[in-house]
C-alpha cells in the first residue's frame, strides 16, 4: 500500500473493532452464558450450549433473508408463513421415486423462492409498501395452507430430513453445519460482491441508486427471493427437527428473525448493517427466550418482555438513526 492510500484508507484500529455491533452482540452472548451458568447449574454444559446454537440455527437461517431485505430498506413479514409452507408442503410432495427426499426438498425450496420472487415483484413493480405486500402474502398463504393441510399435523419421513434433524457429523449438529455454510455464503454475497454493494445502495437511498445505474427492481426481487429461499430452508430444518409440520409452525420465527437482525446492529431503516451481527443476534435471542421460559413466565409476560426488548433495542439503534 502506498503512502497516499494509507491516508485515504487508514487501518482500522483494534479498539474500534470492539465497538462494532457484531462483536458487541457476541460479547453480550458470552456474558449472558457465563452469568446464566453460575445461576443455573447445567446451563453451561457443552450439550446445552450446543442445543442453544442448534435452536439458534433455525432463527439464524430465517434471519439471513431478513437481513438482506432489511439492509435493502424493506421488511419481510411473510417469513413465518413461508416457513410454514415449506414445513407443511415438503411432506405433501413426497414422491415414490424420490427415496432420499432430496427432490421434495428441492421443489419445496423452489416454491419458497418463487413466493419470495412474487413479494419482490409486488414491491418493485406494483410499488406496494414492503410491509403491505408481505403481510398480504402472509395472509394469502395462511388461507392456502389451511385449505391444503387443514388443522392436522403432517409428519414426514425421509433420509434427508432425518439427517437434518438428528445427524451430528463430527459432533456438530447438521442444522448448525447448514447454517454455517449459508452464513459464509451470505456474508460473501453481502460484502464481497457487487450485488451486496447494490443491496446497501438500495437501502440507503433507492433514488440515488437508480440514478447511479443500479438495477433497483432486479435487486429488490433478488433480496426477497433470498428471503424466500432461506425461509424455505428454515422450514425444512424445522420439519427435520420436529418430525412433523403443522399450520402455524413458522409463526414464531417471523418476529425472531426481525429481532435477530435488529439485535445484530442492522438498521431497521435500511442501508447499513451486516449478517455478521445477526449470527450472535440469533443465538442471543434463543438464549433470552430460553431464560424467559426458565423463569416460568406466563404467555402474557413473555409477550410483554419481548415487546419491551424490541422497543429497547429500537431506542438504542434509533439513537444512531437520529445522528444521521
Amino acid at each position: 500500500m502506498n503512502p497516499g492510500e494509507a491516508v485515504r484508507f487508514p487501518k482500522v484500529r483494534p479498539r474500534a473493532l470492539f465497538a462494532s455491533r457484531p462483536v458487541l452482540t457476541f460479547l453480550i452472548v458470552v456474558a449472558v452464558w457465563i452469568g446464566a451458568s453460575f445461576v443455573k447449574p447445567g446451563f453451561g454444559a457443552f450439550g446445552h450450549l450446543r442445543y442453544l446454537v442448534e435452536l439458534g440455527a433455525v432463527v439464524g437461517l430465517a434471519a439471513i433473508g431478513q437481513t438482506f431485505v432489511v439492509i435493502a430498506g424493506g421488511i419481510d413479514l411473510s417469513v413465518g408463513a413461508i416457513i410454514t409452507v415449506s414445513a407443511v408442503g415438503a411432506p405433501l410432495v413426497a414422491l415414490a421415486f424420490d427415496e432420499s427426499g432430496a427432490f421434495a426438498a428441492l421443489i419445496t425450496l423452489a416454491a419458497a423462492t418463487v413466493i419470495g420472487v412474487l413479494n419482490g415483484l409486488g414491491v418493485a413493480f406494483l410499488r406496494a409498501h414492503p410491509m403491505i405486500m408481505t403481510l398480504a402474502m402472509a395472509t394469502f398463504l395462511q388461507g392456502l395452507l389451511i385449505l391444503l393441510a387443514g388443522g392436522s399435523a403432517i409428519s414426514a419421513q425421509s433420509p434427508l430430513l432425518e439427517w437434518l434433524g438428528s445427524a451430528r457429523p463430527g459432533g456438530v449438529p447438521a442444522g448448525v453445519l447448514v447454517w454455517a455454510i449459508a452464513s459464509v455464503l451470505s456474508l460473501l454475497a453481502l460484502h464481497a460482491t457487487p450485488f451486496g454493494a447494490r443491496v446497501f445502495a438500495l437501502g440507503a437511498n433507492s433514488l440515488a441508486a437508480t440514478l447511479s445505474g443500479v438495477n433497483v427492481p432486479a435487486t429488490t426481487v433478488a433480496v426477497y427471493a433470498i428471503s424466500g429461499l432461506t425461509a424455505g430452508m428454515t422450514g425444512l430444518l424445522l420439519l427435520g427437527m420436529n418430525g412433523q409440520g403443522y399450520v402455524g409452525i413458522g409463526d414464531p420465527y417471523l418476529l425472531s428473525s426481525i429481532a435477530a437482525v435488529v439485535l445484530g446492529g442492522t438498521s431497521i431503516l435500511g442501508g447499513s448493517g451486516t449478517y455478521a451481527g445477526s449470527i450472535p443476534g440469533a443465538v442471543l435471542l434463543v438464549t433470552i427466550t430460553g431464560l424467559i421460559t426458565v423463569v416460568n413466565a406466563s404467555p402474557g409476560w413473555r409477550s410483554i418482555l419481548f415487546g419491551s426488548l424490541i422497543l429497547a433495542l429500537l431506542l438504542i439503534s434509533g439513537r444512531e438513526a437520529r445522528r444521521r
Binding site: P194, R198, A209
Partner: peptide, 14 residues
C-alpha cells in the same frame, strides 16, 4: 465506486 459496482457482474468477487 458505486457506478462501477452497478455495472459489474453481480456475483463476481470485488
Amino acid at each position: 465506486m458505486l457506478p462501477s459496482l452497478a455495472r459489474a457482474f453481480s456475483l463476481s468477487l470485488r
